[in-house]
Design a protein around this nucleic acid. Structure first.
Length: 187
DNA sequence: AGGATGATATCC
DNA sequence: GATATCATCCTC
């Protein structure tokens, strides 16, 4: 698995956010940190489609925190939540659009210990924090890659978690998960 | 059901 | 400068 682990190209991210979210399921997240490699298969994500999406951080406009999400596609938007946990998103669509996909749960593949079911736990297990804010996912430190031996799976759509404040957007089925996978954070 | 724990946005 | 609010998780 070491050779031909090429990062997904930037063109993968430069597409409609719901499509990117859908296609991220089954892809492999890799983080290379001080000589070791941590990786897991993505089993659950959420799409935040742009500033008009009242659940998206970008709905409050361009701020220092959301700068990366308004930046070019294929970079990491990482933030601290509840003073404890980090959450990682991939930035989608063209620069200035303000959209991204939250990575919510992983199936552990290599170098991972502990729970990876939930965005905070995923980031902790992968060693992802704000030092990776804005990281280029087309580089060789933190990136996504195609599963070399993909198996077929069913994709299920559900409303997003923890966005009850978002009015009409609270109920949108923008959470994508692999049906029946034991590593999703919630059914 | 409620607490941890700190950055951030938004208010005075 | 103060405070309300979190795209969460754990414990009771």
């Amino acid at each position: 698995m070491r050779p031909l682990m090429r990062p997904l190209p930037r063109s993968f991210y430069d597409r409609p956010t719901e499509l990117v979210a859908h296609d991220l399921l089954g892809k492999i997240l890799v983080h290379r940190v001080n000589g070791e490699q941590r990786c897991g298969r993505i089993v659950e994500v959420e799409a935040y489609v742009g500033p008009h999406d009242l659940a998206a951080h970008t709905s409050r406009g361009l701020t220092k925190r959301t700068q990366a999400m308004f930046g070019p596609p294929g970079h990491a938007y990482i933030y601290l939540i509840y003073g404890i946990y980090h959450c990682m998103n991939v930035v989608t669509e063209r620069e200035g659009h303000g959209s991204g996909v939250l990575l919510r749960a992983l199936e552990p593949l290599c170098g991972l210990s502990g729970n990876t079911r939930g965005p905070g736990l995923l980031s902790r297990a992968m060693g992802i924090d704000r030092s990776l804010y804005g990281a280029d996912l087309c580089g060789d430190t933190l990136f996504l890659t195609q599963d070399p031996a993909p198996q077929p799976f069913e994709i299920v759509r559900r409303p997003r978690i923890g966005v009850a404040y978002a009015g009409a957007w609270a109920d949108a089925a923008l959470r994508f998960l692999i049906g029946g996978n034991p590593y999703v954070s919630r059914k």
